[in-house]
Design a protein around this nucleic acid. Structure first.
Length: 260
DNA sequence: ATGGCAACCAATGGTTGA
């Protein structure tokens, strides 16, 4: 199984680009974030034409997450369980995969800037609910994949210049600790576990020529339960997506799992 | 000199993102 996570930064504003990239990477499951459209406005037809079923949790203007799968999607959960009062569409979870079912979540974790402040508090609170849900999902003892834009730079080696990010919500010790706690629960951070490369990025700002200078950060991650982590074969960052016309500022991260 | 980009909604600018 090939599974990807990708923050598209508006599915409507760059639909041709999105469809082209999805065709190129040809994954079985795709987790999308920052749709910036309401659930009913999602381009279901175009996505179905590529062979995908779609589960969508959208909202007007901001946020919005989806999971696309080439096999049947079941047991859809919209919103982070336990955090039902959250009005922002940042979490969707499904079971898919056909004969070898996997539980998959598409996550758009709050940015948290400016730090410190209310938005940072919201980020940390959201991460606590995510940790509780992640813990519950382990009890399934099945392959679980928590995929998304975590808005966390795990270490100083995951950005081009730590000093630039020192006061940013994405690199705060509290953000990193909350991300680390997911791994202490038993989840494997795919890229770090088998690529072990520093200064590999998944996001480059539109500003200041960040892409041309390779001033990026690594904030899009695939976290795997033990049942999925054992079957991880390869992780790719589809960097070419950032060089296309009208690109998203994020690129897809793709995990290859050998599921029997 | 401390910005510079892009999307969105609404409106010819403000908000948000990372």
């Amino acid at each position: 199984m090939k599974i990807a996570t990708w923050n598209v930064n508006s599915v409507k504003a760059r639909l041709p680009t999105v469809l082209e990239v999805l065709k190129t990477i040809d994954c079985d499951v795709i987790c999308l974030q920052e749709l910036k459209c309401e659930t009913d406005a999602f381009p279901y037809m175009e996505i179905e034409d590529l062979g995908y079923e779609a589960a969508v949790h959208g909202q007007k203007t901001y946020n919005g997450v989806a999971i696309l799968s080439k096999t049947n999607i079941e047991d859809v959960v919209k919103g982070l369980p336990g955090n039902e009062d959250d009005e922002q569409s940042r979490y969707i979870e499904v079971t898919t995969g056909g004969e070898t079912p996997v539980r998959v979540a598409s996550i758009y974790l709050p940015n948290g800037n400016p730090f410190p402040g209310e938005k940072f508090d919201y980020k940390l609170s959201w991460m606590k609910y995510l940790e509780a849900r992640a813990s519950d999902l382990l009890k399934l003892e099945e392959p679980v994949i928590l995929a998304g834009d975590y808005n966390v730079i795990p270490s100083d080696d995951d950005c081009w210049d730590p000093s630039v990010w020192a006061n940013d919500a994405l690199a705060q010790p509290e953000s990193r600790a909350a991300f680390q706690r997911l791994q202490w629960l038993g989840y494997t951070e795919s890229f770090a576990s088998i690529e072990a490369k520093s200064h590999a990025y998944t996001f480059w700002d539109y500003q200041r020529g960040a892409w041309q200078k390779d001033h990026g950060i690594r904030i899009d991650h695939l976290l795997l339960s033990p049942e999925a982590g054992d079957r991880l074969e390869k992780v790719e960052i589809f960097k070419a997506a950032r060089g296309l016309e009208k690109p998203s500022d994020h690129v897809p991260v793709i995990g290859h799992l050998k599921l029997t």
